[in-house]
């Protein structure tokens, strides 16, 4: 089984505060890996190191390495922008740009220089279909993305990320701002997406992790407590802390 990411002894500090402590794990390709843990445990931080979005924060110090496609993404010469075209991200709160649906999805490709109208149309259509949104919006691609419902907006953000044809999609609590019906739709979508992409999802909803993920990592206070196949984590965890979290003793 090939790995999308190989993380080795990753440490991250915000100023003096240690957010990630000696994280070591592999993220397999074409599977869904969930990161769970109580608030502040570092799961979002970990997710954001995978596409180096942590660079945007001041006072961040990182050591250890993360390998993507055999290369250390923290190396000096490593092209961060290129990384982000291959590792896409969907955020917690749906945040379509204040533009039309079409322009939102075409944004990424346009930034990469694609200008041909026909090519862009193909890309937009394909992305919307793969994000299970096409039928709902095919007649109003020119309308503002802000007019869509919360669930539709989030699927739009997924379509926007897919338009870049990434290998990996990172999702940071993608359904926490949505109602249960929209959540269910997106969970189905994620299961579909697994066929083409590697997915890493942060969720504070354990049942969601249990429902859709193949592997689950449990983090607590910046440390990786346990990482294994989802079935094992949820039925037979090895660490006591994992069990306590799963059964709701804390968090």
């Amino acid at each position: 089984m090939e790995n999308a990411f190989t993380i080795n002894q990753l440490n991250l500090k915000y100023g003096e505060k240690k957010a990630l402590d000696q994280i070591t794990m592999d993220i397999p390709k074409n599977q869904i890996t969930a990161l769970i843990g109580p608030s502040g445990c570092g799961k979002s931080t970990l997710l954001r190191t995978l596409n180096r979005m942590n660079d945007l924060i001041d006072n961040v110090r990182i050591d250890g390495d993360i390998r993507y496609e055999e290369q250390d993404i923290f190396a000096k010469e490593y092209d961060v922008i290129n990384l982000r075209t291959k590792v896409g991200m969907v955020f917690q709160k749906p945040n379509p740009f204040p533009m039309s649906i079409f322009d939102n999805i075409a944004y990424g490709p346009r930034c990469q220089g694609i200008k041909d109208r026909k090519v862009l149309q193909e890309i937009v259509e394909r992305s919307l279909i793969n994000a299970a949104l096409y039928d709902e919006v095919k007649d109003r691609l020119k309308e503002s993305a802000k007019e869509l419902s919360g669930g539709q907006q989030q699927r739009l953000c997924i379509a926007r990320a897919i338009a870049m044809e990434p290998d990996v999609i990172l999702m940071d609590e993608p359904t926490s701002a949505l109602d249960p019906i929209a959540t269910a739709k997106i969970e189905d979508l994620i299961l579909e997406l697994k066929k083409k992409y590697t997915i890493v999802i942060v969720t504070h909803n354990m049942q969601q992790a249990a429902r859709i993920s193949d592997n689950t990592a449990f983090l607590l206070m910046g440390e990786l407590i346990e990482y294994d196949k989802t079935d094992i984590i949820f039925s037979n965890p090895k660490e006591t802390k994992t069990e306590e979290y799963i059964t709701g003793r804390f968090g």
Partner: peptide, 17 residues
């Protein structure tokens, strides 16, 4: 359909510049 690779590279250099 992946974008033609060489095209991205040109654009990337241009973008960075």
């Amino acid at each position: 359909m992946k974008f033609p690779i060489f095209k991205i590279w040109d654009v990337k250099k241009k973008n960075r510049f």
